[in-house]
Amino acid sequence: MSERILIVEDELKIARLLQLELEYEGYRTKLAHTGMDGLLSFRDEQFDLVLLDVMLPEMTGFEVLKRIRATDEWTPVLLVTAKSSVKDKVEGLDLGATDYITKPFEMEEVFARIRSALRRASSSKEQGVQIGGLVVDESRHEVKVEGQVVQLTPREFELLAYFVKNPNIVLTREQILDAVWGYDYYGDTNVVDVYVRYVRKKIEMENHTYIQTVRGVGYVLKESTHEAKG
């Protein structure tokens, strides 16, 4: 077991307890004690799951979750909170939380919910994501169009994978830069346009479009068919 878990919790004793128990179970962990630190850690590093407290200094867990889901639809996020009202749970789930853990909790429950969330995430990756004739399989680092394997560079694959994680969502160039090139990238946003053209040439056919331009905003991935010109 080598899954990496980000623990965002401002109560030091609870954060340390979670870290010790999870590492004893074989997980790798990182601690963050404010909402902003948690968000920056998530953007800078790779995690398999996030344990996210709701009541945090600097930025609430709900706001952190909202920003995570703006660029990442798949990483499991378990909200941890002392609040048990239905309203709070509904708000978290509507924002994209995978599951909810209410304080005080038993560690066996935490372990079970983590295992369940990781299994679901792994199953989704193994099946790959299909949109029309386009299939993107992250576990195999493979792209197929109408059953034919398409060769992409690592950066092209990362760009396409980001699109398929956010289907039918209009993504700005800035969002794409943060997710694919990194939060600290300071180059021209035109690099997004260049790589979108590269990917389009490889995955799109005369009568089939996937990555569509939204003028003045950015791009959106959705299947679109049209008659070939004769």
Rank of each mutant, 00 (worst) to 15 (best):
G35D: 04
F42R: 07
L51V: 04
L51N: 02
Q46C: 11
F47A: 03
V50C: 10
I14G: 04
E21G: 04
K13F: 02
E25L: 14
R16W: 04
E23I: 06
V50D: 14
F47E: 00
G26F: 05
L17H: 08
D44Q: 15
E25D: 11
L17D: 15
V50I: 10
K13G: 03
T29Y: 10
Q46F: 06
L49Q: 07
L12I: 08
M36A: 10
D44M: 09
L40C: 13
T29A: 14
K13W: 00
L22E: 00
A32E: 00
G38D: 02
D37H: 05
S41R: 06
Y27P: 08
R28D: 11
H33G: 07
E45G: 04
E11F: 06
I14T: 13
F47P: 00
L40Q: 15
K30P: 07
Y27G: 01
E25Q: 12
L31A: 07
Y27R: 00
L20D: 14
F47V: 08
K30T: 06
K13L: 06
L39S: 03
T34Y: 00
Q46V: 09
Y27D: 12
D37C: 01
H33I: 10
E11N: 12
D48V: 01
G35I: 06
T29I: 07
D44G: 11
Q19A: 09
E25A: 06
V50A: 12
H33A: 05
T34H: 03
H33M: 11
I14Y: 03
G38A: 03
S41A: 15
F42A: 05
A15V: 02
E45P: 01
I14L: 13
S41G: 04
D48W: 05
T34C: 08
T34S: 09
G26W: 08
L22M: 09
R16H: 07
Q46K: 14
S41W: 01
G35F: 06
R16F: 06
L12K: 13
E45L: 12
A15Q: 12
S41K: 11
L51S: 01
T29L: 14
E45N: 14
M36E: 11
L22Q: 07
E45F: 10
E25M: 00
F42K: 03
G38L: 00
T29H: 10
K13E: 06
Y24F: 15
L20W: 15
G26D: 11
L49P: 07
R28L: 05
G35P: 04
L12H: 10
L49E: 10
A32I: 00
D37S: 04
E11H: 09
L18A: 03
